[in-house]
Simulated scan of single mutants.
Amino acid sequence: MGTTVQELGAAVRHARKQQGLDQLLLADLAGVSDRFLRDLEHGKPTVRLKEVLRVLDALGLTLQVRPR
């Protein structure tokens, strides 16, 4: 997915579009606000991890942590 918040947001946006979802529908499926999803997709650095994980789960994505 990359190493920056902007890359994470771009990956979420790409996956959402690939699945034919608009922001409102994905936000509803993930249980987050549409404002949160917009912030995430635009790379806002202060998004909450708990909600990020909900969005990733709704898209069928996982977050991977590994040594550099």
Rank of each mutant, 00 (worst) to 15 (best):
M1C: 05
M1T: 08
T3L: 12
T3Q: 14
T3S: 15
T4V: 07
V5F: 12
V5M: 15
V5D: 11
Q6F: 05
Q6K: 15
E7S: 08
G9F: 06
G9W: 11
G9H: 11
A10V: 01
A10E: 13
A10F: 02
A11I: 01
A11D: 12
H14A: 12
H14S: 10
A15V: 04
A15S: 14
K17S: 07
K17P: 02
K17N: 07
Q18K: 12
Q19N: 07
Q19T: 02
G20I: 01
G20R: 05
G20Q: 04
L21P: 11
D22S: 07
Q23Y: 06
Q23P: 03
L24S: 13
L24H: 09
L25T: 15
L25H: 13
L26G: 03
L26Y: 05
L26N: 01
A27F: 04
D28E: 14
A30R: 07
A30P: 04
A30I: 00
G31C: 01
V32C: 06
V32A: 12
S33Y: 04
S33E: 04
R35S: 13
F36P: 04
F36W: 01
R38I: 13
L40Q: 06
L40P: 09
L40T: 06
E41D: 10
H42I: 00
G43F: 08
G43M: 01
K44S: 14
P45D: 14
T46V: 07
V47T: 14
R48D: 14
R48Q: 15
L49P: 00
L49E: 09
K50C: 05
K50Y: 09
V52C: 08
V52K: 02
V52M: 13
R54C: 08
R54E: 10
L56I: 06
L56K: 03
L56T: 03
D57F: 10
A58P: 10
A58L: 06
L59R: 04
G60A: 03
G60R: 00
L61Y: 10
L61G: 05
T62A: 13
T62S: 12
L63T: 05
L63C: 05
L63W: 09
Q64I: 05
V65T: 04
R66S: 14
R66T: 08
P67G: 02
R68K: 08
